[in-house]
C-alpha cells in the first residue's frame, strides 16, 4: 500500500490487519478442534462408560459413572495401587534420561554459540547429534534389544575381553533395563534440545556477553549470571515439552522390553498400561480413564515446572523481560 493510498483513506483511523491474522490462524484451530479437542472430549466422555470387545462381541457402552476411576485407584491384592506405581516408573525413566539430556544439551549449546571458542564444522556436528532423533524409536529399540541380548555383540565383547565370564542378562535387572531406556531417550533427544537451546542463546544480545567479559566475569560466571537467566524462557519451554513427552513415554520401553516392562513391570509406563487395555479388548472405558489421569498429571507437573522456574528468574534486566513476553505468546 503506497503513501497516496493511505492519505486517500485518511478518514479511517487505521486499517485493521487483525482479521487477516485470524484468518491465517484459522486452519490451525480447525485442525486442532477436529483432531485434538473433539477426541479429547470424547475420551473424557468414554471414561464414564463400560465399553469393550469380548472377542468379536461388543460389550456396552453402558454408563457406569466413576467406576473406571475407582477401579484404577483400588489397591490390588498385594496392596499396591498399580497406576501410581506405573506413574512413578514413568517419571523415574524420564528423569534418568532428562538430566543428562539437559546438562549435555546446555553444555553443547554454550560451546557451539561461544564467540571465543568459534568451533569449526558446526553444521556437521549439529546434524550428527540430531541424527538419532530421525530414527524410528521402535527400530532404535529393536537395535538395542539385539545389541544387549544375552547372545548379542555387547555380551560377546564383555566375555571375549574377559570382563565377564558369563553373559550378563541386561533385561533381568531393574537398574540395567531402566538405564538402557534412559540412555536411548537421552541419545534420541539431546540433539533436539541442543538445537533449541542454541537458538535461545543466539537470541541473547551479544553485547551483554562482551560487557560481562570486560567487567572481568569468567566463563562460568557468564554462564550462570548472563546466559542462564536470559535463556530461562526457552529452557522452561524445552523442559515442559520434554516432560509432556516423557509422561507419554511408550515406544522405547514397549519394544525394548517386548511389552512386558520387565523385570516385574518396573519399567512399565502409564501409556503401556493404557495400551494393555486398549490393544486386545478395545477397552475404551478403562483406557479413557487412564488417559484422563495422564492429562491431569501432565497439567499439574507442567504447571509446577512453569511456576517454579519462571518465578526464580523474574526480570533480571529490562531487555529479557520483553523477550520472555514474546516467548509466552
Amino acid at each position: 500500500m503506497s503513501l497516496d493510498n493511505r492519505s486517500l483513506n485518511g478518514r479511517r483511523k487505521s486499517v485493521s490487519y487483525a482479521k487477516w491474522g485470524y484468518i491465517f490462524i484459522l486452519p490451525f484451530f480447525l485442525v486442532y478442534i477436529v483432531f485434538t479437542l473433539v477426541p479429547q472430549v470424547l475420551t473424557i466422555y468414554n471414561s464414564f462408560f463400560t465399553n469393550y470387545m469380548d472377542g468379536l462381541k461388543h460389550i456396552g457402552p453402558e454408563f457406569v459413572g466413576l467406576k473406571n476411576y475407582v477401579s484404577l485407584f483400588t489397591p490390588n491384592k498385594q496392596g499396591s495401587i498399580l497406576i501410581l506405581k506405573y506413574a512413578a516408573n514413568t517419571m523415574i525413566l524420564w528423569f534418568l534420561g532428562a538430566v543428562p539430556q539437559f546438562l549435555i544439551a546446555l553444555l553443547l549449546a554454550v560451546f557451539f554459540t561461544s564467540y571465543r571458542l568459534n568451533i569449526k564444522g558446526q553444521g556437521f556436528f549439529k546434524t550428527v547429534i540430531y541424527m538419532p532423533n530421525l530414527i524410528m524409536a521402535s527400530a532404535f529399540s529393536m537395535l538395542f534389544f539385539t545389541l544387549f541380548s544375552k547372545v548379542g555383540p555387547v555380551n560377546q565383547f564383555l566375555q571375549q575381553s574377559g570382563i565377564m565370564d558369563k553373559p550378563l542378562d541386561f533385561f533381568a535387572s531393574k537398574v540395567t533395563v531402566r538405564s538402557l531406556i534412559a540412555l536411548m531417550n537421552f541419545l534420541m533427544w539431546f540433539g533436539n534440545t541442543t538445537i533449541v537451546l542454541m537458538a535461545g542463546i543466539m537470541g541473547i544480545d551479544q553485547t551483554l556477553f562482551e560487557a560481562a567479559t570486560i567487567d572481568g566475569a569468567n566463563a562460568v560466571k557468564v554462564f550462570f549470571k548472563v546466559t542462564l537467566p536470559l535463556l530461562m524462557p526457552i529452557f522452561v519451554y524445552c523442559l515442559i515439552t520434554a516432560l509432556i513427552g516423557g509422561i507419554q513415554m511408550f515406544d522405547v520401553p514397549q519394544v525394548l522390553t517386548n511389552r512386558l516392562g520387565m523385570p516385574n513391570r518396573t519399567s512399565f509406563t502409564l501409556v503401556m498400561y493404557l495400551n494393555n487395555y486398549l490393544s486386545t479388548s478395545k477397552n475404551y472405558g478403562m483406557s479413557g480413564a487412564i488417559s484422563v489421569i495422564i492429562f491431569i498429571i501432565t497439567g499439574i507437573l507442567g504447571g509446577i515446572v512453569y511456576k517454579f522456574l519462571s518465578a526464580q528468574y523474574k526480570d533480571p534486566v529490562e531487555k529479557p523481560r520483553r523477550a520472555r513476553k514474546g516467548a509466552r505468546k
Binding site: 460389550i59 490390588n76 491384592k77 516385574n264 498400561y273 490393544s279 479388548s281
Partner: peptide, 21 residues
C-alpha cells in the same frame, strides 16, 4: 527376578487388563 507369587500376580493383572470378563 521375582518370586512365584509376584509372577502369577502379574499374570492375573495382565489378564484383567486384556480380558475384563
Amino acid at each position: 527376578s521375582v518370586d512365584k507369587d509376584t509372577a502369577l500376580a502379574t499374570f492375573y493383572q495382565k489378564i484383567n487388563e486384556t480380558y475384563p470378563d
